[in-house]
Design a protein around this nucleic acid. Structure first.
Length: 231
DNA sequence: GCGACAG
DNA sequence: ATCTTGTCGC
């Protein structure tokens, strides 16, 4: 498989990208409960970069939601399609992530993204964007609070505190391990916030970061290293 | 106006 | 994200 290119109609600048977000946001579905935790498949998505060589590698790893064992995976390597701009992260990752998703031979089930969904300046982060483009249920689990502030959740696993924006709960700081910094969960598409948090917790029985993200992270790094070696 | 800011 | 070894601890 070769290196995928940047779509011809890709936004040329930040203003065009923000317009795309505002337009796609109208297709978000936010009144569904979403898939039940522990059933079917969950797919972790992540990317690794080599800005020097203008490469981005994406991985999609499908887990059995009950056992958390991998049942399928795929990778794709592409050209970097956008600079990193806070609030426009999706444009950097999406073409290559979609290529990896397309290469899967099993049903992805719920998409678990490394970043935010509705917790975003225009309520349209990576997980929401990917959800709309694929039509699938999607959540975002981020390791950093982005621009949002939050009250410290309680100390135990499962404790959480809201991420607020304009008095609205756009996500949650969720403790997946007792006494360890929380992760930041938000809805992407076709799922409720309660259910998104239930999934995040079910996917993190042992470590702070969900198993989906850990698998995808390891795989995209491997794919990037191979792409480098291939020149 | 300036800095901060998911990955 | 990325530059990066060993090391402390469960």
């Amino acid at each position: 498989m070769g290196i995928i290119g940047v779509p011809a109609d890709w936004p040329a600048d930040e203003e065009a990208a923000r317009d795309v977000q505002r337009r796609l946001r109208g297709r978000l579905v936010l009144d569904e409960e979403g898939p039940a935790p522990g059933e079917g498949h969950v797919t972790g998505l992540d990317v690794a970069y080599d800005d020097e060589r203008d490469l981005v590698a994406a991985a999609a790893v499908v887990l059995d939601a009950r056992t958390l064992e991998p049942v399928g995976s795929a990778t794709a390597v592409g050209r970097v399609s956008f600079p990193y701009v806070p609030g426009l992260l999706a444009f950097r990752e999406i073409p290559t992530v979609l290529a990896a998703l397309d290469a899967l031979t099993v049903d992805p089930g719920l998409l678990v993204c490394d970043g935010y969904g509705l917790a975003h300046p225009r309520r349209f982060g990576l997980a929401a964007h990917l959800g709309v483009l694929t039509g699938r249920a999607a959540i975002g689990v981020a390791k950093n609070p982005f621009t949002f502030s939050y009250e410290q959740p309680g100390p135990d696993r499962g404790d959480f505190a809201p991420l607020l924006a304009d008095g609205e709960e756009v996500g949650r700081a969720l403790r997946t391990r007792g006494g360890v910094k929380p992760v930041f969960v938000s809805v992407g598409h076709r799922i409720s916030l309660d259910n998104a948090c239930a999934h995040a917790l079910a996917l993190s029985p042992r470590f702070r970061v969900p198993e989906t993200t850990r698998h995808a992270d390891a795989l995209c790094r491997r794919a990037l290293a191979e792409a480098r070696a291939a020149e």
